Amino acid sequence: MENTVGDFLRSRRARIRPEEVGLPSYGRRRVQGLRREEVAQLAGVSVDYYIRLEQGRGSSASDTVLAAVARVLRLDEVEAAHLRVLARPPGAAAASRGGRPIREGTRLLLDLMTGVPAFVLGRRMDVLAWNALGDAVQGFSAAPPELRNAARHTFLDPAARAFYPRWEAVAAETVAYLRLDAGRHPEDAELAALVGELSVRSEEFRRLWADHPVRQKTHGVKLIRHPLVGELDFGYETLGVNGCAEQMLVTYTAPPGSPTAQKLAMLASWTTSGEPVAAE
């Protein structure tokens, strides 16, 4: 899978103009942004050391060196953590080949959240389980099994652009999280296959993936155009499932009395079962 530390560092060097870091911008430059020699100079390391880092031979790089490179390239907290993972990747034994099953306690929690759309995401953005209101909003049970994956749904489902009025923002967020997952699990063959599939079938995915964005999926806003009740303007919160590090509980929220809350109540009244549904 294409996911090297060199690709990431080159993409970040290209974002910075020399004059932004006090370097002259005149003269002919063969690369966009900073040269490797300039990054090395500003970070206080030798050019040879930095080149080895970009070539993926920096597994012994110290936190101090990586922090200096992150400072020069103006990486945010998530990007800096991603750099540390790429520069010092975990061994192949640490790569997950599958997801843990949903705990009964997590299923019960989904069941009890009758007024909140909720679902559980696992590795590679697979949708593992959902509650009745989450299904009423997202339509998980009606989707083909291969589209019960947030990345596939976003880029390969023809209905996704209408479902997400701000599709470009959803697409960018999806790629940024998938990039983060790829950095943590460089030996994951299933993730490599997913990235390969999306790259072949979606030009937009290829373009976004090449930019090497990284971002945690913690909270934000999500606008959905529902086929029955119209636009739903949600906030979302993503919560880790204790004891299952690769599972996340995603909840959609709306202020009481808001138009979205009223539409949710309507959807809830149409829902006959409050039991969570697990993907087969």
Results as ranks from 00 to 15, higher is better:
Asn149Pro: 06
Glu204Thr: 14
Pro213Asp: 11
Ala87Trp: 01
Arg166Glu: 11
Gly105His: 12
Thr114Gln: 11
Tyr164Gly: 03
Asp188Gln: 08
Val214Met: 11
Ala160Ile: 03
Gly105Asp: 14
Ala151Asp: 07
Arg107Tyr: 06
Arg107Val: 08
Ser202Thr: 10
Leu198Val: 02
Ala143Thr: 03
His212Glu: 14
Ala151Met: 10
Ala142Val: 10
Leu194Val: 05
Ala192His: 11
Ala169Arg: 06
Gly139His: 12
Gly134Ala: 04
Met125Leu: 12
Phe205Gly: 10
Pro145Asn: 06
Ala172Trp: 00
Leu112Ser: 10
His212Gln: 13
Val195His: 01
Thr106Glu: 11
Ala94Arg: 15
Leu191Gln: 14
Pro158Trp: 02
Glu146His: 12
Pro186Tyr: 04
Leu133His: 03
Gly115Glu: 13
Arg88Trp: 12
Leu108Arg: 13
Ala118Lys: 05
Asp188Tyr: 07
Arg88His: 11
Arg179Leu: 00
Pro158Ala: 01
Val120Gly: 08
Ala81Gly: 10
Asp135Leu: 07
Ala189Trp: 03
Asp111Leu: 09
Ala118Gly: 07
Tyr177Thr: 08
Arg100Ser: 14
Asp188Glu: 07
Ala150Tyr: 04
Val120Cys: 05
Thr106Trp: 01
Ala176Phe: 01
Leu180His: 02
Ala136Trp: 02
Ala95Tyr: 15
Val78Tyr: 00
Glu77Arg: 15
Asn149Tyr: 04
Gly99Asn: 14
Val137Glu: 01
Asp211Tyr: 12
Glu173Lys: 06
Thr154Tyr: 08
Ala93His: 15
Asp188Trp: 05
Pro145Ala: 01
His185Trp: 04
Pro144Cys: 03
Leu110Gly: 10
Ala210Glu: 12
Gly134Arg: 02
Leu156Ser: 09
Ala192Trp: 07
Glu79Asn: 12
Ala94Glu: 15
Pro90Tyr: 13
Leu110Glu: 11
Leu86Lys: 07
Arg201Lys: 14
Gly105Asn: 13
Leu156Arg: 01
Arg148Phe: 02
Thr106Leu: 14
Pro144Trp: 05
Asp111Glu: 15
Arg84Glu: 14
Gly115Ala: 11
Val200Ala: 15
Glu190Lys: 09
Asn131Tyr: 09
Pro90Glu: 12
Gly105Thr: 13
Leu73Ser: 05
Ile102Gly: 09
Asp188Pro: 11
His82Gln: 13
Glu104Met: 13
Leu109Gln: 07
Asp126Ser: 01
Val72Asp: 03
Ala80Gly: 14
Val120Glu: 08
Arg107Trp: 10
Ala162Asn: 11
Pro165Ala: 07
Val127Lys: 09
Ala159Leu: 07
Glu203Gln: 13
Asn149Leu: 00
Arg100Thr: 15
Gly122Tyr: 09
Leu180Gly: 04
Ala132Gln: 03
Asp126Ala: 06
Arg152Trp: 09
Phe163Ala: 05
Gly196Glu: 15
Leu110Gln: 09
Ala193Met: 03
Asp76Tyr: 09
Leu180Met: 07
Glu168Tyr: 02
Pro213Glu: 14
Leu178Asn: 00
Asp211Cys: 12
Gly122Thr: 06
Arg166Asn: 06
Val137Thr: 01
Arg88Ser: 14
Ala143Lys: 11
